[in-house]
Design a protein around this nucleic acid. Structure first.
Lengths: 204, 204, 204, 204
DNA sequence: AATGAATGAGCATTCATTCAT
DNA sequence: TATGAATGAATGCTCATTCAT
């Protein structure tokens, strides 16, 4: 896809590039040492800039973490909406959501670590986050389940919001285990395992 | 066995009481402010003792958090073994595990916050913890699922370890949402909702 | 020499014994770790008593160090006076002083370390000490030199006080080197080497 | 080689200046209060900088003391080698050493206090220091005495190393007394008094 | 007298943030 | 914009001393 600016030398593009570089560096550093143990100097060093420069692009260390979440969540939600746009069938929609969830997080281990560990590691963040993108995400799942119930494909003795949490929790645990695992394996295929149970249960 | 000292005033008991008081205070403080933002002075203040006294009972702030996890996990595992001892049926065992999980964490909101937030908020802790009690817990679920498969009550096209993670993840998410919820509701009943899906799936 | 109290069980004797035990323990601990790095608890432990008991015999940690110096210095001065009482000849008196200096410090390595290191390691102590026993000690040497000059055996183009410092400094350095030496050798014989130079110089 | 920046304003010079300022401040503070009683904040205050700035130039409080010793000793040894380079006569060399010793320490009272008090006030420092510059210093004296013996000007019934210690000890005591003295007098002239005795002895 | 648990003042060090250049 | 030296508030931990028993 062609860029609208020639080379990366336009003022705007440079700004975005450096901001981007800092975010990437922060994701790496936060993933390795954790938010509280990471120093702004580490991030600057990883990004190849001076410490002070960080503050030209972010208001604070806290702001960096928030920006990481915001950007990733926005991208994820957008990508989700795009992919779900043409899928009508609730079952297929749920399948697509689950796959997308694990594909996205499975594609960037550092980002996954930051999401699973740092986002969860702070009630403050979690609360703010719930109010933001996370709530929206859960809501998309909830609505799809409700649609499925209306369409007569999902059992109706289950509150959609609870179903959404169960699916999300199961997927989330797949990610957490993948992060902590000493073995290296692809995360995305786990979606099918989760869906197998989510859709059909474990009882024969 | 008769005590030589009346009631809980024996030296041993006093020591345990103070240690206990510090742990309780720490759970409260950690739950409210998070581990990193909590000051040892906060804990001491909450426990009604001098700052230095904390160090007569714990080696460091870090040691306090570890002690919280260790004690709670040991108690939980013990209680679990006791309650599961007389249950043979895999389905019932799984049900008991899920209920116990939410009963225990639902009984102490602060403790639940510390577990959900602080334990998850540190790869270091998570790794140490995985190697310790958490792995053991997941293993109990895994074995029960395997037993159920052998007994012909659970579908066999699912790896027991994956099933265990799915169940755990779903329960865990119930706890996390309960913690973050502005509304106040009992956590334990959520176990049935999770089991409904885990056992039977959502498809009609 | 017979004791005036039978056994060590009289109140006075017990007090002295425990005080003595604390001082001995302190000398050992101070010698090994240095005054500032030594903890009162270390001293109590070495003396086999409870921490608080130290304060029944000494006003403070500082007081212990002072007591060590005071007692040792008093003993040393007394012993010196006794031994010098019957020596008239200034040369022999100087010899006796030098020998006694190295004999005494050479007899107790820990005490020597405390004297050489801790006493010197604090201007405060040194000033207080100068005003106390140390000044008295130097004065005895000074007077002996002056006597020798009056008697025509010592050169008179040297201020007695300077001569006293030179002798003391040379002896002191023997002690310091002996303490720091990795090899083990008797300190007392070094007195003759010092006196050889002090009396006759190094020039042929 | 021309500088691109005028006078002492180059980055390197500024760094050295601030490092120098901290060392000077530390010498003053250590001399007045002693190493253990001195606070890093005192040093920073004396140097007119913020507390944290100290750590941009030194690794720790301990590192400051070491740097003081290292720099002074290096300077002293260098200056000594320079001045002794053209002196052949062992007697004159000894004289020069003694004079230099008292000239240098007599030129900076605070530095002298730090050397006499803090260096001696720690077996740890003394041991490290013995292995370093101090041993080298004593060795220079020792060799000169041995040369004098070989040249037939010094008596041979004295081990050179012992002679070196005696001279050093005598000089050292001059410094210590000068530091502790309430009167103010020049230290350097005391070298002649010491040499008078060292060379010719006190006996007529 | 003896104990040792409790106290709390004290301090070296870190690090997010600022700002002169 | 970019730098990185400087700042100084913040805090975990130690240990001399006290005092209830």
């Amino acid at each position: 896809m062609p860029r609208h600016t020639r080379s990366g030398s336009s003022a705007k593009a440079v700004v975005l590039d450096k901001r981007e570089a800092i975010l990437r560096a922060a994701i790496k550093v936060f993933a390795n040492r954790g938010y509280f143990s990471s120093k702004v100097a580490d991030i600057a060093g990883e990004a190849g800039i001076a410490d002070g420069t960080v503050y030209l692009y972010f208001k604070s260390k806290d702001d960096i973490l928030h920006s990481i979440f915001d950007r990733a969540m926005t991208e994820f939600i957008d990508e989700g909406r795009r992919q779900l746009a043409e899928i009508e069938d609730p079952v297929e929609r749920i399948r697509r959501i689950a796959q997308l969830h694990l594909e996205k997080l499975g594609a960037d281990r550092n980002m996954a670590i930051v999401f699973q560990v740092e986002l969860r590691g702070s009630t403050k963040f979690m609360e703010q986050f719930s109010a933001a993108g996370f709530g929206e995400y859960l809501d998309i799942i909830r609505k799809t389940i409700a649609d499925g119930q209306a369409a007569g494909v999902f059992r109706t003795d289950l509150k959609p919001v609870v179903g959404a949490k169960i699916l999300y929790g199961a997927l989330d645990e797949m990610v957490t285990n993948w992060i902590l695992s000493k073995r290296s394996y692809p995360l995305a295929p786990m979606a099918d395992e989760v869906l197998k149970v989510f859709f059909g249960g474990v009882l024969i």
